[in-house]
Simulated scan of single mutants.
Amino acid sequence: MRYTKQQWYTPAEVAVHNTPTDCWVSANGKVYDVTNWIADQFKICECAKTCSCPNKNWYCNDCVEYCPCFKRGFFYCDGKRLGMNLLMHAGKDLTYWFKDGDWVRHIHAVTGTKVTYRQHGHGFRDPIGPSTRWRPLCEPWWSGDKYVVGKATAKTRPIRITNTLTGSTVTLEVCSEETIYEIMMRYYPHNSHLMSYTWRYMGKALCLKKTLDENGIPDERERFSDVALAENMHIPAILLYYNDDLTEDPPRSDCFCENVTCMMKRPSGCFKSALS
């Protein structure tokens, strides 16, 4: 079985990446890894500053940075505004920041011009008023696919996977856009020999290239909510029927190589014919 890269992500999977050294956000149906972009934004600030934290890190929680920007009334220096704005929303969906693929705009109270609305203000090199001479220093994180790691699902749903051989059951939260094969990748840590089983629902074999809905596995949570029943009252179950395990490593008696590592990789030139 070939392990494929994950394409769809749930909100819970994005939410766990919420630290300065591992920061993900979702926007407009895409998931972005903005860790390197944030680090570049913090390098822009060249103010001579002192930190009250003994660790001297820009991501301290209980320290105050004293720099010329702080004396002007800003808690964070100008060079960190864009980075802090994104870092404070790490692991969240930021689709409401955009409209038609660009930032939401508002009328500035001082200049009277339409500018992008940013909660913590513009960066110190990003002008508030329009200017034909201004150019961004680096590619914005929301522009292009440089920082894209996957797609954000529009809807998640639970699914139960029951192994009829062992009787074990695992409940997974999957993306509604994922195919059965992609769901198998999520189940892979629980059973690495998936190709030795037939996946069935209500006695019918499933097509691995189709989604749960396309395979006739409905999501009835809305119907339960309409009649005041718990959404998890019934979760559809996929049954795994054991066929034959062809993915097992060969027993030691069948390996004619003296190299112990051949039990894992099994290079073709490692084995000798039993008749020789």
Rank of each mutant, 00 (worst) to 15 (best):
M84I: 15
T156S: 12
A154E: 14
L86Y: 11
E220D: 14
T10R: 13
K209F: 09
I161Q: 01
E13P: 08
V260N: 09
T261N: 11
I180M: 15
I128M: 06
M195H: 13
G150D: 03
A48N: 14
C270W: 00
L82M: 13
P140D: 03
V260I: 12
E177T: 01
Y32R: 06
P54I: 00
E46K: 15
T113H: 05
K155Q: 09
K209A: 15
G123K: 01
P218H: 06
D245K: 02
G129D: 10
V227G: 02
I159C: 02
T35V: 11
F70I: 03
C270S: 02
L172T: 11
L229A: 13
V104K: 15
R133E: 11
L87C: 04
K49E: 14
L208W: 02
D22V: 08
N163W: 07
Y76N: 04
A109N: 02
M233P: 00
V260S: 07
P140K: 07
W24Y: 03
K265V: 11
K43R: 10
P127T: 00
A274S: 02
W199I: 06
S143I: 15
D244I: 13
S225N: 09
G91D: 09
Q41M: 14
I161S: 05
W199F: 15
C257I: 13
A154P: 05
V34T: 01
T113S: 10
N191M: 04
E258G: 05
D102A: 12
P236V: 04
L194V: 04
Y66G: 06
N57L: 15
R186I: 03
D22F: 06
V25G: 01
F75M: 14
D145R: 12
T169V: 14
M1K: 13
L275S: 14
V64K: 05
Y188D: 12
D102M: 10
T211C: 01
C60Y: 03
E214I: 03
S26H: 00
G216E: 01
G203K: 03
R223C: 10
S192A: 08
C257M: 10
D145A: 10
V115L: 04
D102P: 05
F74Q: 10
A27G: 00
P189H: 02
V174Y: 09
L206N: 00
V16M: 05
D78P: 03
R252K: 11
W134S: 01
I107R: 15
F224D: 03
V110I: 13
A39M: 13
Y242T: 05
G73L: 12
C262M: 05
Y242G: 01
C69D: 15
T179F: 07
I180Y: 09
A152E: 06
G83T: 02
W103C: 09
L87T: 08
K209G: 11
G29L: 02
S225Q: 13
E214R: 01
S26Q: 06
F98G: 03
Y3G: 07
